[in-house]
Design a protein around this nucleic acid. Structure first.
Lengths: 244, 244
DNA sequence: TTATTTGATTTGTGATCACACTTGCTTTGA
DNA sequence: TCAAAGCAAGTGTGATCACAAATCAAATAA
């Protein structure tokens, strides 16, 4: 046990953080997760192991394990052909996802409202500023940054809820609704962005006041908006298809 | 495309259901799931890929993929040593799990109460009878059957909630609380069983009356009981350890 | 021209191997 | 006698191969 003794005797070793190894599989998994939450894959798109392995510059082994994990959390779908695809968007599924997100993320933010420290509140407050900046130079609509910032804002809150059980569930829900969200954001006009900022400001205000109910209501409004927007769009298209 | 043409032309093929192939990996995954929900593994027990592969009479490949899937749904835990174990029981984790189960399973049963058909209600009603039978010959305490029947009862209800999103989450929660539940059931005296039957009868009655609130309350009481029982037991042991 | 068949390519699955790291035990030196 | 070094068995990870099933394309027959 060279390492243990070194830790005890060596004074400079005390201030060294353990350098947790990450496997190739983890990197592949996280990369695919990022792509899914960000909506980089089309709904109904089929993914092949060898195709992803080539794109990610690795062998098939880490990819197939990462795909298996994503399938179990319903972020991907295993077809009877044994091929895997990103799940298609349907109205029923969207309603189902939104209901679950309201239930679970609503609970998480209510818990967080009672537990967030001033330091954590300052963090999410500063994110509002970033949002304003982005809106200021909106000539270049940076959807990627918008998605990333939105995710950072919400999960900074959820992490404070103190539940190691709820947070993975929320991550799974974001993974599942990722493809929908991206479609919605792309279709959003500039009118949508000001509302996003408005709801986020309301959320921060409610959390600062430790008002769990107000925070939950604002969150429900925030996450409902892209879903109802996309719902209207899909219904309009369905009607158009019938009339055509 | 011989199959497609056969399906169209052959009249007897129309009434044949597709016989979805199952892979070895799926069998391993389901078997490990069953073992975890049933609490066949000890909390904190470490599992090795080669050990499980030998026990399941297969190669390491399907096992490692199944373990990876179980780790992502938090049914197993990956230690920094890269070894995997079934998560240990702590008071915080139990409270966390119970809160999440009340939230999500409560919502599922409330939805189901409004949607269950008379046929489905008859099914869960007949399960009450099975419970009575088992209690009648309670000389041989069959924990396995008790766990299986309890699971069948609850999931017959949850399946009726009509949400493809909530059900996998509930499965994940059962997977995570499996080890706790088994410990609780083992410690249960006979007094516990009559209460189980009582709550289940109340649940069936409430669902038959389409009373969502009553059904949710009875369910909360039902799933809370083993947790509070185990909680008391652990706290008593902790106190004893301190005094000793 | 259209529908069917046949062959080649692609794809997922399981097994096996090589390598690096961990772990537990034995041996060595003070 | 005891701690440290060294060795050996065990374990997870990634790569590669073999095989079966699916998919696609060209060729053939009606």
């Amino acid at each position: 046990m060279q390492k243990a003794s070194a830790e005890k005797s060596d004074p400079i070793a005390a201030q060294l953080a353990p350098v947790g190894r990450e496997t190739v599989q983890d990197r592949v998994y996280l990369e695919l997760r990022r792509a899914l939450i960000g909506g980089l894959f089309e709904p109904s798109q089929v993914l092949t192991i060898r195709g992803l392995a080539d794109a990610l510059m690795t062998s098939t082994m880490p990819v197939r394990e990462a795909l298996g994990r994503l399938i179990t959390e319903k972020a991907l779908e295993a077809l009877p052909n044994r091929s895997v695809r990103v799940p298609p968007i349907t109205l029923e599924r969207m309603d189902d996802l939104l209901r679950a997100r309201i239930l679970i993320e609503g609970e998480a933010i209510a818990l967080a409202a009672a537990r967030m420290t001033p330091r954590q509140i300052a963090t999410i407050e500063s994110m509002l500023g970033e949002w304003d900046e982005m809106r200021a130079l909106k000539h270049k609509k940076d959807v990627d940054r918008e998605v990333t910032l939105n995710q950072a804002f919400h999960f900074e809150i959820y992490r404070a809820c103190g539940s190691a059980v709820l947070i993975p569930m929320i991550e799974s829900l974001w993974l599942q609704s990722g493809p929908c969200i991206r479609v919605a954001i792309y279709a959003f006009s500039d009118a949508g962005e000001v509302d996003t900022a408005h709801y986020h400001r309301t959320i921060v205000k409610a959390i600062a006041a430790q008002d769990a109910k107000e925070a939950r209501d604002a969150l429900v409004a925030d996450i409902s908006r892209p879903f109802t927007f996309l719902r209207n769009k899909l219904e309009a298209e369905a009607k158009k298809d019938i009339s055509a």
